[in-house]
Design a binder for these strands. Structure first.
Lengths: 356, 356
DNA sequence: CTGAAAGCGCTTACAG
DNA sequence: CTGAAAGCGCTTACAG
């Protein structure tokens, strides 16, 4: 057997072990019907020869399908963020679909818990080989994760990490750290006499953990600057599914302290604040928020928003499908916490982020 | 022939055309020995049926090797930047080596033109199927590109774009735009009474175009602010391969205008300026530069450097190998100008860039 | 110019 | 518990 010339094959292992290729295959895939002795011998040789199967040949002979389920919010006029993970998934499929991977989309309504439950039920009926999950409704998502864990279905969480250990991976941002980045940018550009307002747009019974973490990170940064005591770092919570008078609320909050010079919005609703600032002609604020929504980009370009922090939603999709590919097909280990870089976006580098 | 049930195969095309699979294959790969009439008929059917070959089966049967050459600088104590493209290439190989792709490294000395010429000669002897090229020595690199073009070898340029049209792709940063990003960051944090110093570390007969472009972008941004006229945006060129007295030169330049408040270094040598500022106890400067060298990271962490802009060298390597894979194996078209995002790095988001 | 056969490395029934 | 044979979809000599 010429070991050094070419790659070693199942056939070579079989010859060395004095068995047929079929038996080696049985051992390789742990599908039983092999005597303990034979098994041990074959495993020894595989190990000695450092044999690795050719996945191309394997996939070709297998004709197996790997239907992945994407259980994420539907893109909507009021939530355009969610089209990007889907784009990333499509892109990842370009590299992996040859191996039998495909994606079924179960898109639920971001504001409707019931629809999440329905879609997840539908999904389980179709017995997916892997799941990409955005845990928007924390408790219900936890149930899905539990169920997948019981059925041996690997789950990749995106955007928010509620994993207790039974997930294949999490792909998303380190929220606390991203709050610190926001604070750095604020501090770098704000004169020391100005106060800061932190605005949280909050949704009832939705997952707020990342919002809280961002605020926590922001405050953590400022804890190194004692002059920014509690009263100079005020906080405003606005309930979102209220038919709220945003301008009114904001006006009151900003007027409450005329020394407010910087505003940090802990999620993508920063355009609401930008809207208010523009219409009230108050252009002398440092304004920092999240995500490249069209409205946010508009205000970034016009200079009302100073910085946006991107959660790289496209990359979340891309990495999640590739993680499942590595796990299911290549049978390689997958990094558990895949924190994406915390991207800082200005007018000037926005152009090269178009597809992110 | 069941068209809708399963994917269509070469065999199906052959049956429809009333020929053998071999003949279809000859047409698919344009290797002649087929009558014009048969050829036309087969092409028609391929088109009608929207047939796409299975690359797994193709690769498996082919056993062809695709040896890619990486003609880039050797990593060195004085140039650690260049280890990252190599890392990215390795990472890309993980996804593509099943298809027969491999990489031969031709690492030249960044400071020695002769070594570039030698390595490129060596490379051509081994007849690579594709080339990843860092055009450090502009003129000599142009000759390599020309030669590849003549021999039909696709070239992916990384880091600097000197392509006249005969390259498969360029992967790197938009230098002009990155200068504008640097200016935005400077302007955002600098009080309006401070002057700015632009420092170019320049190497004899090396490729300086990206440095000049960065300065140009920086000035372009400031052209919107007339108060920053020429004399408030001074420039300092330091020749690098001189055994220069950097501190002395810098001291003189900074002292020349006591109102200097911001320093922009147009490449990775920003640590030299940071060193000087630290040792001279001048900590009240805004300092912005390029690349995540260890020394630069050190000064970023200690607060002497405010921002670093990353050229994403790892991703340059990754994308270049994937581009060649798409071109050579998948035979898909490849985007010509692959501008990478212009990443802004602070102490706070540095952690998640460790491998970039 | 065209076809039949063997092969790439692995897997899947089937027979024993 | 094990092996021989056929097959995945494409390609490569070889024969005509």
């Amino acid at each position: 057997v010429d070991t050094n010339l070419t790659r070693i094959r199942i056939k070579d292992i079989a010859e060395l072990a004095g068995v047929s290729p079929g038996t080696v295959d049985r051992v390789l895939h742990d599908r039983g019907e092999v005597s303990a002795a034979t098994r041990k011998k074959i495993l020894g040789i595989i190990n000695d020869m450092d044999y690795h199967p050719d996945i191309l040949a394997s996939t070709l002979a297998n004709k197996k399908e790997f239907r992945i389920a994407a259980l994420i919010p539907q893109e909507k006029y009021n939530n355009p963020f969610w089209k990007y993970p889907l784009k990333g998934i499509e892109e990842g499929l370009l590299e992996t679909s040859h191996f039998g991977l495909s994606v079924d989309k179960y898109l639920f309504d971001y504001f409707d818990r019931r629809s999440f439950i329905d879609k997840s039920g539908e999904m389980f009926k179709n017995k997916p080989k892997g799941v990409i999950l955005a845990p928007v409704f924390t408790e219900d998502a936890a149930i899905v994760i539990e169920k997948c864990s019981n059925e041996g279905i690997p789950v990749v969480l995106i955007n928010a990490n509620i994993c207790n250990g039974s997930c294949l991976a999490f792909v998303g941002q380190d929220s606390l750290q991203s709050g610190m980045v926001a604070a750095r940018l604020m501090h770098y550009g704000l004169d020391r006499s100005s106060d800061i307002l932190i605005v949280n747009f909050i949704r009832e019974n939705g997952n707020q953990e990342h919002i809280l973490k961002r605020e926590e990170g922001f405050r953590k940064f400022y804890s190194a600057f004692p002059e920014y005591h509690e009263s100079r770092l005020r906080q405003l919570n606005i309930i979102e599914n209220d038919i709220s008078d945003y301008p009114g609320i904001l006006k009151e909050a900003v007027l409450a302290s005329p020394r407010t010079g910087g505003i940090f919005v802990t999620n993508s609703r920063v355009f609401r604040v930008a809207e208010f600032l523009e219409s009230s002609g108050s252009l002398n604020f440092r304004l920092i928020g999240y995500d490249l929504l069209e409205e946010n980009k508009k205000y970034l370009k016009s200079g009302i928003i100073d910085f946006l922090i991107s959660q790289k939603p496209r990359e979340q999709g891309y990495k999640s499908i590739l993680s499942l590919y590595h796990h299911l097909i290549l049978k390689k280990s997958v990094e558990k916490n895949q924190y994406l870089p915390i991207d800082i976006i200005t007018r000037e580098n926005l152009g090269h982020y178009t597809f992110t």
